[in-house]
Amino acid sequence: MTKRILLYATLTLGAFVAVFPYLLVVLTALKTQSQLNATEPWVPGLPPTTANLTKLLGGEFPRYLLNTVVMTTLLTLGQLVFTTFAAYAFARLRFRGREVLFWLYVATMMVPSAVTMIPLFLIMRELHLVNTWYGLLAPYVLGTPYGIFLMRQFFRGLPAGLEEAARIDGAGPLKILTRILLPLCRPAIGTLTIITVISSWNSFLWPLIITSGDDTKVMTVALATLNSGIGVDYNLMMAGGLIALVPMIAIFIFFQKYIVRSVVLTGLK
Rank of each mutant, 00 (worst) to 15 (best):
M1P: 08
M1A: 11
T2V: 13
K3H: 12
Y8M: 10
F16R: 02
V17S: 02
V19G: 09
V19D: 08
P21S: 12
L24S: 10
L24N: 09
A29V: 03
L30V: 06
T32C: 08
T32H: 01
N37R: 14
E40W: 14
V43Y: 03
P44S: 13
G45F: 07
P47M: 09
T49K: 05
A51P: 00
N52L: 06
L53Q: 07
L53P: 05
T54W: 10
K55C: 00
L57H: 09
G58H: 10
P62H: 07
L65C: 03
L66T: 12
V69E: 05
M71K: 13
L74A: 14
L74F: 14
T76L: 09
L77F: 13
Q79N: 15
L80W: 05
V81Y: 15
T83K: 02
T83L: 00
F95D: 01
G97K: 03
R98K: 15
R98F: 08
R98L: 05
R98Y: 10
V100F: 10
L101D: 00
F102K: 09
L104R: 06
A107N: 07
V111S: 08
M117G: 02
M117K: 04
I123E: 05
E126Q: 15
H128F: 07
L129M: 14
L129P: 04
N131V: 03
N131G: 08
A138G: 03
A138R: 03
P139A: 07
Y140H: 11
L142P: 03
Y146V: 12
Y146D: 00
I148H: 06
M151S: 05
R152C: 06
Q153L: 06
G157Y: 00
P159E: 06
L162K: 02
R167I: 13
I168H: 03
I168V: 15
I168Y: 07
G170P: 03
P173R: 09
L174Q: 08
K175G: 05
I176N: 01
I176C: 03
L177N: 05
L184K: 13
R186M: 14
I189R: 06
I194K: 01
I195Q: 11
T196H: 07
I198F: 12
W201F: 11
W201D: 03
N202T: 13
S203L: 04
S203P: 04
W206D: 01
D214T: 12
D215G: 05
T216H: 14
K217Y: 01
V218H: 07
M219L: 15
T220G: 04
V221L: 01
L223C: 05
L223R: 01
L226H: 00
G229Y: 12
I230M: 12
I230L: 13
Y234V: 01
M237H: 02
M238G: 05
G240S: 11
A244P: 05
A244C: 15
V246L: 15
M248T: 13
M248N: 08
M248G: 02
A250Y: 10
K257R: 15
I259N: 02
V263T: 12
L268T: 14
K269T: 14
K269S: 14
